[in-house]
Design a binder for these strands. Structure first.
Length: 801
RNA sequence: GCGGAUGUGGCGGAAUUGGCAGACGCGUUGGUCUUAGGAGCCAAUACGGAAGUGUGCAGGUUCAAGUCCUGUCAUCCGCACCA
């Protein structure tokens, strides 16, 4: 019998499709399991071998769960709005919807050829109006609950193309396409108040089964800090300058202040600023730098003193200067800082450069050399009312003081910023709001949803950086849903994070026209039991979707405060040259080719055998061959299968060990070692030269989640009853996983000397006695007297002489 | 600079609570079968002639360290100077 994967795989994929055997059942009496993988962005390039790694991993879990008796939901869909599709459509004068349709068809065909057990009847696409109707609906709820608001935010603007650019389209401060200079341009944009959920997003992590590194990244991204807001009086101006500081205890060390070049006071009080021209010039210069560049070129501080306005340190009433510098970012805190050059490295550098005073307020260090920043603990000096106190106590006292004087208050702050929800692009969900001169921003009626994307001749953004939708006047011009007067539609669209923020809910009830999903079905299926995705989505997507879900929970539409009870992450697959796979590096491996040469079962197995699932690993064609070889060896085991319907005596222990290892390793994503165990089992069978019917059947079930086609085929070839996907996962008996006789090592002073066989249940005491009785041990002791004997059952005996 | 990781044979990688370092696979070498084999099967394979030495490097704890502690070096990923 020849192993012919092409024939076998096509045959079984058709049978599974016809039987719909992997479809989830909405039978609420069954135990459920919801396995989720991140749905792909259907790019024009099609799949590369990196995609199947996470899909195969959770397909293994999904298939195993079905064999364990669960009603499994394992869905797939398309995150299909986005920039590359739109750019491609523009370039080739096509409709983005048509491009999307083609790309999806290609992706789907590729995924189907790998034999995943997705429930294709629940397929969704974020670009489907029936889907984005509900994306818009959720946005409207956010708006109605005051979580969406407009704010002036800067965008990257190409001075030559006259369009807004995404961060990734800006390369070294220049436009990726034309090479012209990119500047920051202010635009009034929709924002979502994710910061209202900052505390909840941290607290919610506590009981979740997320990888610790994922939790750490989320917590660091949210970046909660505890400190105070302090109001500094300004000369000539009645409004104070508000700063945020985590170290209010260092207030006496403040010798100057710095505000960001984007700070609104510069515009508001320009008439009072004597050197406004100089400052304007500085603003222009810094607008060309990205925030990241500002941090990168931090070696040399730049800045301009504001002439004509001074600030007053509220604790000692000293007049201090105010500077503008781009090391202060408008996006964090209040966009202004109190500078404590004695104890902050950046402030120290700045003070040195511009000859500003430096005062020590926490004792220790040598301020003539560098800032003293090791100040989590210490004693306050030169510090008025908190002089002599420990840092910890000083913080408490100074906050009490500033609160009582009305010059500040305790405040938590977050690194997390609100979510910029506007894109000046065509290929995204239209924002379902209209602007009325009388009523302001008004949501369209929910019955009017979906608000469809109008068809366009051209998808180029308008010359002023506005969305292409702004050019269709008969779409833009509408009437106010509230007062009926003429009004204008919002022309910005949503970012592609929108559709992916709730897609796991739509899979539950994908054809529902009354709600995004029915409450009963949500109650049954949620939360997602296991969600696997890339580490690169751990901050943005994962936080955004947790935010939306928490919001839906708060307004009563979902039944769990968290969407995913478990979240894991996979490592990247690199090219054979150990570099990231990319077209430009020419090291992309296409799964179609691997399937054509070796079969889908081999591809799946190698994806899992390639290495530690959580780490990146380079592709190796030779490694693929090894997996194919193993499948062939498994196939040929039928040649020496016997008719016995039990485990043979000499294979019993290995059989139980194998069931145990595979069962456990799949759960902890150690797919590589589970497969290694199956290989070791096969090697033992080949050494013995025979396998019983029962052994082979259980071996096939263990291998089935990894390589489903060939195991179905062998199951049927052997005449076993039914289909393999209908079987029960094998059970192991812990007692039978242990050998009766085991080999242990004998060490002298920690060095291996010899090995002996003992009964595996021998007690520690009996093992110690062996040192004086066992001839083998007496030989290696060469008459030396043991000073101490350490015996570890099942492991070793170490003799100290 | 900050945050997250990672360093084990020629290569990918194994190794409960500290307990035989190198499972399994690749590659390589030899054997066998064959008209033939870039197929299959069998065997060997960390280094060293050996005593020994070996998990990035230097210390430490321990009967015993890849695993724990201290310091250090290197590489990768992410980033918004986080006040």
């Amino acid at each position: 019998m020849e192993y012919n994967p092409k024939e076998i795989e096509a045959k079984w994929q058709k049978i599974w499709d016809d039987l719909k055997c992997f479809n989830a059942k909405d039978d609420f009496s069954l135990p459920k399991y919801y396995a989720l993988v991140e749905f792909p962005y259907p790019s024009g390039e099609g799949l590369h071998v990196g995609h199947p790694r996470p899909y195969t991993a959770l397909d293994i879990i999904a298939r195993k769960r079905r064999l364990q008796g669960y009603n499994v939901l394992f869905p797939m869909g398309w995150d299909a709005f986005g920039l590359p599709t739109e750019n491609y459509a523009m370039k080739h004068k096509l409709h983005p919807a048509a491009v999307t349709k083609n790309n999806i068809a290609r992706f789907k065909k590729q995924l189907k050829s790998i034999g995943y057990s997705f429930d294709w009847d629940r397929e969704i696409s974020t670009t489907d109006p029936k889907y984005y109707r509900w994306t818009q609906w959720i946005f409207l709820q956010l708006f109605k609950h005051g979580l969406a608001y407009k704010k002036n935010m800067s965008i990257n603007y190409c001075t030559s193309c006259k369009v807004g650019l995404a961060n990734e389209e800006v390369v070294d401060g220049r436009c990726e396409r034309c090479g012209a200079e990119v500047v920051k341009k202010m635009k009034n944009q929709w924002m979502l108040k994710i910061t209202d959920y900052a505390d909840k997003l941290i607290e919610g992590l506590t009981d979740l089964d997320y990888l610790e590194s994922i939790k750490a990244q989320q917590i660091n991204w949210i970046g909660k800090s505890t400190g105070a807001e302090v109001y500094f009086k300004l000369t000539n101006i009645s409004e104070p300058l508000v700063v945020y500081t985590t170290r209010p205890d260092t207030l006496y060390g403040v010798t100057y202040m710095v505000i960001s070049p984007e700070h609104p006071y510069l515009e508001e009080y320009k008439l009072l600023i004597e050197n406004i021209d100089e400052i304007r010039e500085y603003q222009t210069e810094s607008s060309k730098k990205s925030d990241f560049e500002r941090s990168e070129i931090a070696k040399e501080k730049t800045g301009v003193e504001i002439k004509g306005i001074k600030a007053v340190n509220p604790v000692n009433n000293k007049e201090i200067s105010i500077w503008v510098s781009d090391y202060v970012l408008m996006s964090y805190g209040t966009g202004a800082i109190m500078a404590v050059p004695g104890h902050d490295k950046r402030d120290y550098e700045f003070a040195k450069k511009f000859n500003l005073p430096i005062i020590e307020v926490v004792s220790g260090g040598d301020l003539s050399v560098e800032a003293y920043t090791d100040i989590e603990e210490g004693v306050m000096v030169n510090s008025g009312i908190i002089d002599g106190l420990e840092v910890k106590d000083a913080k408490v006292k100074i906050i009490e003081y500033i609160e009582s004087k009305g010059i500040g208050k305790a405040k938590d702050n977050f690194k997390l910023r609100d979510w910029v929800f506007s894109r000046q692009r065509y290929w995204g969900e239209p924002i379902p709001l209209v602007y009325c001169d009388t009523c302001g921003w008004v949501p369209i009626e929910e019955s009017e949803l979906p608000l469809l994307l109008p068809d366009l001749e051209t998808y180029e953004p308008a010359e002023d950086g506005e969305s292409p939708l702004s050019k269709i006047t008969d779409w833009v011009n509408t009437t106010c849903p509230k007062c009926g007067k003429p009004a204008k539609r919002e022309t910005d669209t949503m970012p592609n994070w929108a559709g992916s923020s709730w897609y796991f809910l739509r899979y539950i009830d994908p054809h529902n026209d009354e709600a995004f999903a029915s409450k009963e079905k949500i109650a049954y299926w949620m939360p997602v039991d296991w969600y696997n995705g890339g580490m690169e989505h751990v901050t943005l997507h994962l936080l955004y979707s947790r935010f939306w879900h928490k919001f839906l929970y708060d307004i009563g539409y979902v039944n769990t405060p968290e969407p995913y009870s478990k979240r894991t992450a996979h490592g990247m697959i690199l090219g054979e040259n150990n570099e990231k796979m990319s077209k430009s590096r020419g090291n992309v491996v296409n799964p179609d080719k691997v399937i054509d040469d070796y079969g889908a079962d081999t591809l799946r197995m190698y994806e899992m055998f390639i290495g530690d699932f959580e780490k990146s690993a380079p592709w190796s064609e030779n490694g693929v061959k090894g997996c194919r070889r193993f499948i062939e060896r498994a196939f040929k085991m039928t040649d020496f299968m016997t008719e016995e319907d039990n485990y043979s005596k000499d294979m019993e222990t290995l059989m139980h060990q194998t069931i145990k290892k595979v069962t456990k390793d799949f759960e902890i994503m150690k797919f590589n070692t589970a497969i290694a165990q199956l290989m070791a089992f096969t090697n033992a069978i080949y050494a013995k030269g025979s396998i019983t019917k029962k052994e082979f059947a259980d071996f096939l079930i263990l291998l089935n989640p990894v390589s489903p086609h060939v195991t179905e085929e062998l199951w049927s070839l052997c005449g076993f009853p039914g289909y393999i996907h209908q079987q029960k996962w094998p059970q192991y008996d812990e007692a039978k996983t242990v050998e009766d006789e085991i080999e242990i090592v004998i060490q002298i002073n920690g060095r291996n000397k010899t090995k002996i066989f003992i009964s595996s249940d021998m007690s520690r005491e009996d093992m110690e006695q062996l040192v004086y009785k066992n001839q083998e041990i007496l030989n290696v002791l060469e008459g030396k007297q043991p000073k101490k004997v350490i015996a570890v059952p099942k492991r070793l005996i170490n003799i100290v002489v």
